[in-house]
């Protein structure tokens, strides 16, 4: 394990940011800390970097107890949401900063900076000031700067949060490819579940200062540990008192499956390739999403009487199954 976080707690006045959090982050992987704003994930990242100190608990990085180490001794690369570019230095000098501090020979610095600027596709901007770059370019510069010192771990705090949607998506793909090339243990904080599911090898879901679940994107999506994880990772709807994903529900027009309940269609909305059907089951409004083909083959209309059931092969359901029939 590359980063070992043991019973870390942190308060800001009365606000509990982290409540005895323990996480093991594996070497060489891309791990996402995912959760809603104010849930404590950024605080955890900053504690790993040494930019905040934990009130109690322990941090180990590659087997070394880092709890009391100052940030400059931890050898971590940190990338900030708002880039934290050194405004008075050129792009090349920004990237060279950590190497200059380490008093490396000039030739080596020049070579390494050149190599990194190639890696982040900024070679032609080496002599510009950060203010002359776009947001996405600045963030790539910040990444190169963090990578220059060959950190043991790379930490990214909402790295794409300040960028517009299109650039964000490009950078996300790019980060994944970069990680496949560089293989440095990487932890990034995000509140965007899509980003975490798409990029990360492993996801740590953090809410209200506590770890809700740790697992691969598939594990989290298919078998969420609780309501919160289920709701946070994707769309949900309730059937009886069971929480289920709308695309995991089936509509039947014929009668008689034992686990199905009857209802009437009240609304049909088409969103691109998917059709959202709202079914009134007793007092409850249940959302079901279907593909266009499924929808057409069933020949549904508003007012149709249908049977609703959870697709038999589905795992991700939270709640008590025995109550389903009682609705």
């Amino acid at each position: 394990m590359s980063i070992e976080i043991v019973n870390v707690s942190k308060r800001f006045g009365d606000f509990v940011a982290l409540d005895s959090v323990s996480v093991s982050i594996p070497s060489g992987q891309l791990t996402a800390l995912l959760g809603p704003s104010g849930g404590g994930k950024s605080t955890l990242l900053r504690i790993i970097a040494g930019l905040e100190t934990a009130d109690s608990g322990r941090i180990e990085i590659e087997g070394v107890d880092a709890t009391k180490l100052s940030p400059q001794k931890r050898n971590v690369g940190f990338v900030f949401q708002h880039y934290a570019a050194f405004k008075h230095l050129s792009v090349a000098r920004n990237v060279a900063f950590g190497l200059e501090i380490r008093k490396r020979p000039k030739d080596e610095i020049r070579e390494r900076v050149h190599e990194l600027l190639n890696l982040v596709h900024l070679s032609q901007f080496a002599d510009r000031l950060p203010s002359q770059l776009s947001g996405g370019q600045r963030q790539r510069m910040a990444l190169a700067r963090a990578l220059a010192v060959q950190p043991t771990v790379l930490l990214l705090d909402e790295p794409f949060g300040a960028l517009d949607a299109k650039v964000r998506k490009e950078l996300r793909d790019w980060l994944r490819r970069l990680h496949d090339e560089v293989h440095v243990t990487t932890v990034f904080v995000t509140h965007d579940q899509e980003e975490a599911l798409e990029v990360a090898d492993e996801i740590v879901v953090i809410n209200e200062g506590r770890v809700e679940q740790i697992g691969s994107p598939d594990e989290l999506y298919d078998s969420p540990a609780n309501d919160f994880v289920m709701r946070f990772l994707g769309p949900v709807t309730e059937l009886g008192d069971r929480l289920v994903r709308p695309h995991d529900l089936q509509l039947l027009t014929g009668g008689g499956e034992p686990d199905a309940v009857p209802g009437r269609i009240t609304r049909i909305t088409r969103v691109g390739f998917e059709i959202r059907v709202v079914v009134a089951v007793g007092e409850q409004l249940v959302t079901v999403t279907l593909t266009r083909n499924e929808f057409l083959s069933l020949g549904l209309q508003v007012g149709s009487e249908v049977q609703v059931r959870i697709a038999p092969e589905v795992g991700a359901v939270v709640g008590q199954p025995r109550l389903l029939g009682a609705v």
Binding site: L51, P71, Q72, G77, F86, F97, R145
Partner: peptide
Amino acid sequence: EEQEQAARSLGANAWQTFRRITLPS
């Protein structure tokens, strides 16, 4: 404070951070 924090995490000590980052800004 972020530029200073970035400098610290890149290995600069307090004096280096002040002279190279804070003072120029």
